[in-house]
Write a protein that binds this DNA or RNA. Sequence first.
RNA 1: GCCCCGUUCGUCUAGUUGGCCUAGGACGCAAGAUUUUCAUUCUUGAAAUCAGGGGUUCGAAUCCCCUACGGGGUACCA
Length: 510
Amino acid sequence: MERKVRVRFAPSPTGPLHIGGVRTALYNYLFAKKHGGDFILRIEDTDQTRFVPGAEEYIIESFNWLGIKFDEGLGIGGDYGPYRQSDRKTMYKEYAEELLCSGWAYHAFDTPEELDTIRKEFEKEKKNFQYDCNTRDSLKNSLSLSKEAVDRLLENNTPYVIRFKFPKDTEILIHDLIRGEVRMNSNLLDDKVLYKSDGMPTYHLANIVDDHLMNISHVIRGEEWLPSCPLHVMLYKAFGWESTMPEFAHLPLLLKPDGNGKLSKRDGDRLGFPVFPLQWTDPITKDISSGYKESGYIPEAVINILALLGWNSGTEKEIFSLDELIEIFSLERISKSGAKFDLEKAKWFNHQYLQLKSNAEITNEYMPILEKKGVEVCLEYVEEAVGLVKERVSFVTELWDQSFFLFLKPESYDEKIIKKRWKEGVPQRLTEIVEILNSIEDFNPQSAHDKVHAYIEGNELNMGQIMNCLRLSIVGEGKGPDLFEIMALIGKEEAIERINLAIAKIGGNE
RNA sequence: GCCCCGUUCGUCUAGUUGGCCUAGGACGCAAGAUUUUCAUUCUUGAAAUCAGGGGUUCGAAUCCCCUACGGGGUACCA
């Protein structure tokens, strides 16, 4: 009974897509591709009050950036559309009614305010109110009211919701692909609203109807859905769709790096790492939340990071391309416990991926940054500069700090190094080195290196005495790649100018 | 409160049918090497009495029970 794998990612457009959601999507995608199946994008916008403009576009752009492609769904099309639940609004009503007819659901006329009051009363007695088999008889619904009363209420267009009627004393068994068997007793479950008074279904109804109609084979979603899974299983039963019910897999949650709890929007900016793939500006508050893309993360690295947060290959390999992930991904190797996001390891991953890029690729991304700094240089020069310093950075955004001296003369000199190294006689030595450098015809890292070394040895000096001050003159700080490489790149004249400038500026430092 | 899920180095995790685990790897951390500096890189090291306690067994991180802790759910939100 081989069924074609069809999985869906079903976000609600209530804001930017959380990185945990991206991971859920990634696992769905990997699973689908691994099994030659379809990966579908469906928008779950049954709560009209929470709709945020731009969120749908944001979701699609995010996956474009990550290189995760949907086979079907919003923006792509397919045979099972429409793929936005608000566009499928009319069809849910029939299904809710079907449940009404078959006795699996009932009308409830209690207003939110009334229920709120009851809840508060229960709270006073330290009890928890639940709309369930124990309380529904004393509430305002088609089970407790006479048929005439119900008809009258309906005729008067009294607002109502449709609730699921959980049978009593039933044990519901869930086969979770990650957690194994999970059992729950129906007496403890509440009669969830399936159809709201505004004419929209709730997630619970829409989700089951759509998954069934779209022929979804596996539901891979966050662990927060596990408690309502029994309801979903019962709905399949109520509709008589058990034979094609999808299999369930509930993913562990992504936790905040410090302390406890689910990773939330605020943690990112508090701890200095993005929780969203792309930068997001809140349309109302105008608050900006940082994104992986804008922070300099490479999409392939983000995928790799996410893939290993809650899943592992069982080998010691940690760097995987998307295709490699597809090849070896399996739900069985997903762990059960929540994973904390590790910023340091994320940086390391990005470093690995950055090193894999060609100098030309990195240069392309670096150019706009240089432009902002007001630096005007040709592509070839930047490419060489990138080659010199790329292994020292994890992000393109860190490049400037490691290479500014390849574009600008030092404006100041590190005081600590001056104090430690700029001894008496240094200006004289450097002046002599300027002459030596000047005399080099074919100025390149090797020739500069050879001549300066010869000078040092010839005068029975040691490296530290000369090289540190030379570096200070050229770079302004005690950092950077091989000094002769730097000098060769900036050129003989520039190097000499810088040394003379340093001599003039620092002078005799006694 | 009630229900559900979880618990191996600081972090991500290996450990899938109990014995090869004196618990392995990666990030981070420390030390050393290299170097003209800072980083990178390389080497080495510290780091989990497998949450705790009971069982079962010749033998348990691996099976069972209890407790603790953490997380999730408990909406006309998804």
